[in-house]
């Protein structure tokens, strides 16, 4: 039986994202008709790839689309004056 794209699956993936290994609390999971879209940002490409790999391994029959970005880390060009 194929895995249902329901809210229990979404909750299980959120639980997997926040377990000891991945430890990412800022990833969004959006259910579409036939696939799941992962969003948000992480600090490295290795982290993004590890997240997608672990979810794919845990739910091999679920189509995952990974839209997770890497947070930019350039120096700022502006100063905000606080008043």
């Amino acid at each position: 039986m194929s895995t249902q794209l329901d809210e229990y699956l979404e909750a299980e993936i959120q639980s997997l994202l926040t377990d000891g290994r991945i430890a990412e609390l800022g990833i969004t999971v959006n259910r579409r008709e036939h696939h799941l879209v992962l969003g948000g940002e992480v600090e490295s490409t290795q982290r993004r790839d590890a997240i997608c790999l672990q979810i794919n391994e845990r739910f091999p029959d679920v189509q995952i689309v990974c839209d997770i970005g890497i947070t930019r880390a350039q120096a700022p060009s502006e100063v905000e004056e606080i008043s």
Binding site: T71, R72, A73, Q74, A75, P76, V79, E80, E81, I82
Partner: peptide, 10 residues
């Protein structure tokens, strides 16, 4: 903030 740090002036 999407950059390494913000700068605030006091």
């Amino acid at each position: 903030i999407k950059q390494a740090y913000n700068v605030y002036q006091l």
